[in-house]
Amino acid sequence: MPAPEVFNWLRTRFFPHIWCPGCGHGIIMHSLLRALVGLDKKKSQTVIASGIGCSSRMVGYIDACTVHTTHGRSLAFATGIKLANPDLTVIDVMGDGDCAAIGGNHFIHACRRNIDITAIVMNNNIYGMTGGQISPTTPSGSWAATSPYGAIDPAFDICKLAEGAGATYVARATIANPVQAEQFIKAGISNKGFSVVEILTHCHTQFGRKNNRRTPIDNVNFFKANSVPLNKAKDMSPEELAGKIVVGEFVKKSIPEYTEQYQAMVKRVGGLKDGK
């Protein structure tokens, strides 16, 4: 059971939730809610946007300003909300398909703009909602509904993508370490700029079933056995790192944030007379 102050952020009216029992997405929701409580956020000043997928259904269960947008487009909606009212805390939760496939363009441009939004990528390496087709983060060689002979497509590294595109906070955790996930989400929200927190999670129903990780606990054990902290990974060879999940904070930097830059421009051109 979550702590009462965390429970208070749930719209229990809408329970039961749609997730399969044991789905990793719930662990991420709990980490996010603990982070929001820990940061003393106000529900009515907190926006959580999402795309489409099992992951994105999370926002319906959170009592905040929530918007469940279209597949892959949530960051563009969130950008509009943040720009319209920079006082709001804006978080965007999305699946790996949302983020790296259909929404890839929006993702890299949100990184580039460094707008103060925290993107939480719930990466289960598969399209959970539509029944287990490959995503851009499905490891090559995996079995999925659309890779009946094993996937030949190489996978994206979402954190590297975010770093290359200009995000100012980039971190990765797994659901096997929900406290670390919570810490990274907190750090992401506190960063004044675009933050990406990738959280490796599992879809035992669709991915696990075909790839020898049938139960939730198989997946937790897999993450535990294969996670390598960044400081340790630095001394490992690419061969040693093959198949491993490097966890930690990859980027922490401070450059001007988009809405602050925008406000400065408004001030420069004399636009601060017209109220908000």
Partner: peptide, 15 residues
């Protein structure tokens, strides 16, 4: 796609 999405976001935030 992003243009209309952001505009919808702007409206949701009251503009």
């Amino acid at each position: 796609i992003a243009g209309i999405a952001a505009a919808i976001g702007g409206s949701i935030a009251g503009r």
